[in-house]
Write a protein that binds this DNA or RNA. Structure first.
Lengths: 208, 208
DNA sequence: ACTATTTTGTGCGATATGTCACATCTTTCT
DNA sequence: AGAAAGATGTGACATATCGCACAAAATAGT
């Protein structure tokens, strides 16, 4: 389902490569494209009242930029590659045509949006109610369970990025990570993270 | 566009009335209905890690419960009427059929979901980054500009509800409201709120 | 290889908010 | 009307986190 849909587009899309740190979508810029992230991983972020807010980390394959393109045409958020990535830009008109012609595809997109909304709700509740350790645990579990599907992974974000994701200062993240290491919950060698006590991490993620 | 769509449903829907405080959708319960809020206003909320979290206030006319119904079939959140309301329950199969048969309707729903996602993003950034006064200002402006479209309105939420919305304790909300009154930004007689200095309120909403 | 920039590690004081503890005041229900 | 439940005011105190300051380490750029 995911990328086979692309075949329907025929030649009307070009594959573009992005390096770590490259901007794929820039907030505030006019756009008429939907982005299909073929390979890699990207952070979705927007400039909040005081700092940059990371909203989510998206893993290929997935579509990005729908809300923007359907709404204002002005990008409401930025998307930045956090690892080497491959992207197709799809013209909104082509995309819309696809939606109309293909009810399955339309249903798939609808479903994705719904999931996304639910996630947003839960994340919102979690972030604001839990405190730092709980949120950090969430993020680590997100990496391990959804993004990399392994207990061992290379952190693709800096500590200050993580801070911008879980709404904490960089320093606090640093201290909390140290605590996790001291408590034997994780191990870190540079950016290499290994989760050594997943049960405990889940517990922390649940109760604050 | 909004409720004329309902005509397409023919007789397959029943109108139900809800009083203030009545539960329209209950989190955790199996459901195969989409809800169309015909008249009134309802809060969308879910039980977070420590307290109840209000995610948004929905004003008629609007659809509710889509993410749930498309996804798990188990309601991921509750919806509660905050004023006298009228609701139609639409069977998900009927709704899906409508989507397939009517591309315009489908596009409309898609658009709604996109908007909703964007809102969630912005709200998420705002809530966590601003402090109490800023968030409270947001809520008051939301009431005045989107929900009631007037500078004078009856607060449909208790202070502890507002707390659950902006992630603050009931006591803090109370104190902040008193400050706003003392500063001449709003007036309150019981639940009657009058915004007397909207400019200042907007300023507070922006910078934290 | 050498410099500039970004990341990471750590201490410390300021502070916004949470939380407990009461006292009112309203609304709801019988 | 009277009682029970809920909503609102307000004080005092604890504390998690912010934000500054500065040093060391790692990464990127020329």
């Amino acid at each position: 389902m995911k990328d086979c849909q692309l075949e329907l587009l025929g030649g009307s899309h070009a594959v573009v490569r992005f390096k770590k740190g490259d901007t794929i979508i820039r907030q505030g810029v006019f756009s008429t494209n939907v982005v299909f992230l073929r390979k890699g991983m990207a952070k979705v972020h927007l400039s909040g009242p005081s700092r940059e807010q990371i909203v989510k980390l998206a893993k290929a394959p997935t579509y990005l930029g729908l809300p923007t393109t359907f709404g204002d045409k002005i990008n409401q958020y930025s998307v930045t590659a956090v690892v080497e990535s491959e992207v197709c830009f799809i013209d909104i008109e082509v995309f819309k045509k696809l939606l109309v012609e293909n009810p399955d595809f339309s249903a798939y997109i609808l479903m994705e949006l719904c999931k996304s909304e639910l996630e947003a709700y839960h994340r919102c509740a979690g972030r604001t109610q839990k405190q730092l350790r709980g949120n950090l645990a969430d993020v680590l579990l997100e990496f391990s369970e959804h993004l990399f599907e392994s207990d061992r992974f290379l952190l693709p974000l800096s500590q200050s990025d993580i801070g911008n994701w879980v709404d904490a200062g960089r320093e606090s993240i640093n201290r909390a990570l140290s605590e996790f290491i001291a408590d034997g919950i994780i191990q870190m060698e540079g950016k290499q993270v290994t989760i050594t006590d997943k049960k405990l991490l889940q517990l922390i993620s649940q109760n604050g």
